[in-house]
Each structure stands twice: as C-alpha cells, then as structure tokens.
Amino acid sequence: MSERDRKPGFRRGGGKAPDKGRESGRRPPWRDREASPDGPVILYGWHTVAAALANPQRRIRKLYLSENAARRLSDEKIDTRVTPEIVRPSLIDQRLGPDAVHQGLLAEADPLPSPDIDTLPQDGIVLVLDQITDPHNVGAILRSAAAFAVKAIVTTARHSPEATGVLAKSASGALELVPLVTVQNLARALAEMNDQGFLTVGLDSQGSENLGSVALRQPLALVLGAEGKGLRQLTRETCGVVARLDMPGEIKSLNVSNAAVLALYIGASRLGLMGGG
C-alpha cells in the first residue's frame, strides 16, 4: 500500500456479454497493474472476492465473473454491488496466469485504509512483521490472525508484499477482517507501541527464554522476522522481550507462517483469549 493510500482511523475486522474480440483470445479490457502502487487491488477466488463484497469499506471498481460464479453468487444471495461483466474463465486465466485458482471470480478494488499506529486497541494481540516479503507467507499469517481474532498486523511500507493478488488469495478473505497498519520505520513504530503499553515480544531462535515461559500480558505484540534473516538487529533491540519457540523434535525452526500460528496459540491461551478460556 502506498503512502497516498494511508488514511486515519481503525476498523475491525447478470452482466453484459463479452464482445467477440475478447472471446477470440485478445487481451481482456483490464491492464496488469498489480505491481503498481497506484493500481487497483486485484482480488480473485471465491472466499477472497466474497469477503470483499461483504466488506462495506472495500470499494469494488470492477467485477469479472464466469457464468458459474455469477450463478453461485446469486444462489447464495451475495450482493455484487457493481454490475459484473460475465466472461469466460479463460479470460481470467489470461489475466492472472494459468496457475491462479480463481474459481471464476476476479475483482479490481481500491485498497483498504491503513490505520495509524496510535489507533491500535489496548487489548488483545497484534502481529508485527519485520520485512516478510513472501506473499504466500503473509497471506497465511493473515488467515491465522483472523482465526485468532488478532487486532491488527503492523508491517513496513517497503520490503513487504502489496495487499493484492497472491497475498489476498492466500489470506482467503482475511484481508477484509484484519486491519493492516503500514509504517515507514518499524523500530520507531515498535518504540511507539512500547510507549503505548504494549508488551513487544520478538520471536528469535536465539531468544533468552521460551515464549511459553514469558509472563505475557495485554496488549501483546508478537514480532516475526523474515525466513532466513530473522529479526533485524534494531528490531530485536527495540522489542521488550526476545523469546524463542522451543520444540522437542530434531528440526528446531519453522516456516514463519507456522511459527505465527504456534506463537498465537501460546499467546491466546496464556492470555485467556481462547473460546473456552
């Protein structure tokens, strides 16, 4: 999300037939702007698009549907909010590539607003991502964050994937449920969170104690570093606590999205945030 898309505030959580030229294999009437910060957010797949349509804060610019997808939306009484264009699935394949599982739905939308760091709620758990660049991992973390009712995810404006395309698909609708707070300087944002009363816990294999032994409290910020590099030095130094995730098996490290799930489970359990807690 570009800086111009940032806005203050905090939140929780039958079309026309295509013409023959489009049917004949020519490039469809949309441009590939996923890589451009000024372009629309690209959303595809059933859960991703359905969640966006259900989110009143998400402005849908264009909606492309296969006949089957349009019928399913109608059967499930999901309001498309804009007049969709009915296209062949092959045209969506052409837009996204043959490996994208789009299920006959593609939407172009405006980015969601990025809340300011000082609007974070003073309870629950927040995740902080230190230059995690793989959109699959960030999308999976978003999905887990939604499952654990995480209040927000804080990430950097640079060295992080745009909230579009593969990330949105991997999040499976969670992009509409968990606010993304975009900051220019992560260490400065962590220092501000410390001042706000957050317990900031960096997760690192060289942490001084096991996360399960740390005296956790709310509001809690769990800070995750990129795979391979881990937490940057300044990030680690700004965290109030640096903890590790101890495991009994031969492999001692986890994929960052799996580590996020484990840390969230430990944090939510210790803080009494689980459903039966």
Rank of each mutant, 00 (worst) to 15 (best):
L220K: 02
P161F: 00
A52R: 11
S36N: 12
G97V: 08
E250C: 11
P40G: 10
T80S: 03
L65E: 07
E76M: 11
R88K: 12
R270P: 06
D195F: 08
T48C: 04
G212Y: 06
A243C: 10
L245F: 12
G9M: 07
I86P: 10
L254F: 11
L222W: 06
V166L: 12
G13M: 08
A17M: 13
S160Q: 06
D75H: 09
A268Y: 13
E85V: 15
I132K: 08
M193T: 01
S2H: 15
R6S: 12
E85P: 06
D123T: 09
W46K: 05
R72F: 08
A260E: 00
G173S: 00
G104A: 02
F198C: 03
A221T: 01
N258E: 00
K20V: 13
S144R: 04
T119S: 12
I153D: 03
V41N: 10
E162F: 07
L91C: 08
E3P: 07
A191P: 12
G212I: 14
V41D: 14
Q218T: 15
R11W: 13
L186D: 02
G165F: 12
D195C: 10
S114A: 07
A215D: 12
L220V: 08
D75L: 14
Y64P: 13
A147H: 09
G139N: 00
S269A: 14
G228H: 07
M274R: 04
L271H: 03
E85M: 13
L254H: 07
G165I: 14
P28K: 01
L190F: 04
L96M: 08
H102G: 00
G240T: 01
N185E: 12
A149D: 14
D246H: 04
E67C: 06
L262D: 02
D38Q: 09
R6Y: 06
P40C: 05
W30R: 14
P98C: 02
A52E: 03
A187S: 14
V241R: 14
A226E: 01
L120Y: 06
G276N: 11
L211E: 09
L53A: 03
K229H: 07
R22M: 14
L271R: 00
S205C: 15
G15Y: 02
G212R: 09
K77S: 07
V242T: 11
R232N: 13
A140I: 12
L222Y: 07
Q206M: 10
A50F: 01
L112N: 11
G21P: 08
P219L: 01
S36W: 15
E192R: 12
